[in-house]
Simulated assay, not measured.
Amino acid sequence: MKAYIIKRFLYMIPTLLGASILIFFLYALTPGDFVDSNSSLTAERKAELKLLYGLDQSIIQRYFTWIGNVFTGDFGFSLQYQQPVSSLLSDYIWNSFIIAFASLILTWVVAIVIGVISATRQYSFFDSAVTLGVFAAMSLPSFFIGLLLIKIFAVDLNLFPAGGMSTTGSNATGFSYILQVLDHMFLPVVVLTMLSVGSLTRYFRTNMLEVVKQDFIRTARAKGLKEKVVIYRHALRNALLPAITLFGFELPALFSGAIVIERVFNWPGVGSIYMQAFTVRDYPLLMGFTMFIAVLTVVSNLLADLLYGAADPRVRVK
């Protein structure tokens, strides 16, 4: 197992280097930048700023300067917010992480429960209703679902706030503040869960249908084990193995998907500053956040591989 972990760590290095090259050159080769797009600056001032921020250097020099700073934890300087990208992301990234992580946990719990029940009751009314609901949730745009839930639960029923992270003008602290945050994050988490749970539910259902037809399940039933023991102890454990590999893509995908949801619900996460950075071409901030997503993807895949290795003895032996 130790050799397997070391091998996976070594794979991360060329992957992140390749991702950094793609990220940097994707933004660097895009016409215009923050200085060029600012029409209020004179030509002399633009030349001064380009010299100050190193934008007058060749693209190769800029890449090596940028990647060298990244290794020290410096993702550049945000031209729009006039502060380091690393400190800017640290101020907002945790707000996004709250709803992304809550949605991840809720998505997996709901997907496992519904997927198992749907597989054990194949072609039943419940299975048909789940299939219809899954495809309906997957086909609707995220902003439409968000606005619809705001209309129903915030405007009509007045059960949850329409947006923000806390009540305007509130000075709540401690447990009261936590309750406020939970109240405000309910609708964004529900929307993210609805968008993610569909495909995962179908995946668990398909895996369960394949596992319950295998010989070891027939043997377990022939031994007289209860159906719940057969399904939840034997079938579900084996059906979870292929799904573990999906874990590496779930959390980064939720961060990316939360960008639109944060705008809809006015959630003070990294999505709001990310969208604003696009409008003014604040490429250091865009590259810093994209690189963060790349690192999160690689780390999540590493964790998924380690979990798979711990769950499947064949991987450890190999």
Rank of each mutant, 00 (worst) to 15 (best):
G54E: 05
L55T: 00
L55E: 08
Q57V: 05
Q57N: 10
Q57D: 04
Q57W: 06
S58G: 12
S58H: 07
I59G: 10
I59C: 07
I60L: 14
I60K: 14
Q61N: 10
R62N: 08
Y63T: 00
F64P: 13
I67A: 01
V70P: 03
V70H: 11
G73E: 06
F75W: 10
G76E: 04
F77T: 07
L79I: 00
L79S: 03
Y81N: 02
Q82K: 10
S87R: 10
L88K: 03
L89E: 09
S90F: 12
S90R: 14
S90P: 04
Y92A: 07
Y92Q: 12
I93H: 11
N95I: 01
I98A: 10
I98N: 13
I99Y: 10
A100G: 06
F101I: 03
F101A: 11
F101K: 06
A102E: 15
S103C: 02
L104M: 14
L104I: 04
L106Y: 03
W108P: 00
A111V: 01
I114Y: 08
V116N: 06
S124A: 05
F125T: 13
F126M: 09
S128Y: 11
A129K: 05
A129E: 06
A129F: 12
V130A: 10
T131K: 11
T131A: 04
L132Q: 05
L132N: 08
G133A: 03
M138P: 09
M138N: 04
M138E: 12
S139W: 03
P141M: 05
F143T: 01
F143N: 02
F144A: 08
I145H: 01
I145C: 02
G146C: 07
L147G: 01
I150H: 05
K151D: 07
I152F: 15
I152V: 14
F153Q: 01
A154W: 14
L157R: 09
L159H: 01
L159C: 01
F160G: 05
F160N: 05
P161V: 00
P161W: 12
A162M: 15
G164E: 03
G164N: 08
M165Y: 14
S166W: 11
S166Q: 08
S166T: 13
S166Y: 13
T167F: 10
T167N: 15
T167V: 04
T168K: 14
T168I: 02
T168V: 03
T173M: 15
G174F: 05
Y177R: 11
Y177E: 13
Q180M: 06
L182M: 13
L182I: 02
D183N: 15
H184S: 09
H184I: 05
M185C: 05
L187F: 09
L187P: 08
V190F: 07
V190Q: 12
V190E: 07
T193L: 09
M194T: 10
